[in-house]
């Protein structure tokens, strides 16, 4: 029986197949399609100090090989999350990571403190949401500010601290390095690429336009994500969680080959709501059939020149 668990420092996952923030709700939204208890970890929708309404209509649009979203961090706020959603995660024994987003360093600290007080074992700092006017992405593009943020959160949070990086920078390895120095336990990469989707339709002599600017996700971003993971792998020693356009088991292997220790499935959950669970089974079968006893064995084989 292969051991699929991930144990890298404080990063502890049932297996390396996780679901990405913003695509999987807070806990059991997809349970008719995939039993959340078998997943490596669910990353919650980004949670802020106060509830947020998010952006106005129109929030999503389909593009070639993916989609653009401009949800704008709509969420129920940390208080309601702790009261309504956390108990379900705990009662069901679901492995989970709480994704937090703030408009200031103080807000991140406050959120991380609340997670610490409530026994939450893993958090992911969202410093890469391209869809809100203040905060978030501002923290993810400047290594000095990011370093200060990670340091401050590190002081109040003893669990696994993951930082989710944006690809919308010149040099992702600089940001990764500062996170590692500031005490991050793992990195996840990448968040969405800044993009615009336009749909035109001529109706009764007039153009009907749909335009959505926001984060581009889906199959089209996989090459950018693999590139980010490879560059980070060369620059840092902490574990990397690969995210971006994963739609098949082969994609998962590609991310392992690039240097990822785990992966998050995002937009693919919309296309195939049962995909995350299927990938767990496929990984299990693949390891069993090919004699890989641990993930490290499999990754070692993939990374051998």
């Amino acid at each position: 029986m292969p051991d699929m668990s991930v144990k890298k420092g404080k990063l502890r996952l049932k297996n390396p197949i996780m679901t990405a923030s913003g695509t999987y709700g807070y806990n059991i939204e997809y349970e008719d399609f995939t039993n959340p208890e078998i997943l490596g970890g669910i990353v919650t929708k980004a949670i802020t100090l106060e509830p947020r309404e998010g952006n106005f209509w129109q929030r999503i649009i389909e593009t070639e090989c993916g989609m653009i979203n401009s949800i704008g961090l709509e969420n129920l706020g940390i208080t309601r999350f702790l009261k309504e959603k956390l108990p379900v995660l705990l009662a069901r024994g679901i492995c989970f990571v709480v994704n937090i987003a703030g408009s200031s360093i103080d807000e991140y600290i406050n959120l991380a403190q609340k997670c610490e007080e409530n026994g939450i074992k893993m958090i992911e700092l969202n410093v890469s949401c391209p869809n809100v006017r203040h905060g978030c992405l501002e923290f993810g593009v400047d290594e000095k500010i990011l370093s200060r943020l990670v340091n401050s959160v590190r002081d109040v949070f003893s669990g696994c601290l993951i930082v989710k990086l944006t690809p919308n920078v010149t040099s992702i390895e600089l940001l990764g390095t500062s996170c590692q120095k500031a005490g991050a336990d793992a990195l996840s990469a990448i968040n969405t690429l800044k993009g615009t989707g336009i749909k035109l339709r001529l109706e009764n002599g007039k153009f009907k336009k749909e335009i959505v600017t926001g984060g581009y996700s889906g199959q089209g971003i996989k090459p950018a994500a693999l590139n980010a993971v490879m560059r980070l792998k060369k620059a840092i020693d902490i574990p990397i969680i690969g995210i971006g356009g994963i739609y098949s088991f082969n994609d998962v292997l590609e991310f392992f080959a690039a240097g990822a220790d785990a992966v998050q499935i995002g937009t693919a959950n919309f296309t195939h709501p049962d995909i995350a669970g299927k990938l767990v089974s496929e990984l299990y079968d693949f390891m069993s059939n090919n004699g890989f006893k641990t993930l490290d064995e499999l990754k070692g084989a993939l990374r051998n020149e």
């Binding site: 997809y30 998010g54 999503i60 979203n69």
Partner: peptide
């Protein structure tokens, strides 16, 4: 509405 997840998770289709 244009929909993402169909299960209430992504908040893409809200009115």
């Amino acid at each position: 509405s244009m929909m993402g997840c169909s299960v209430g998770a992504c908040r893409g289709c809200v009115i």
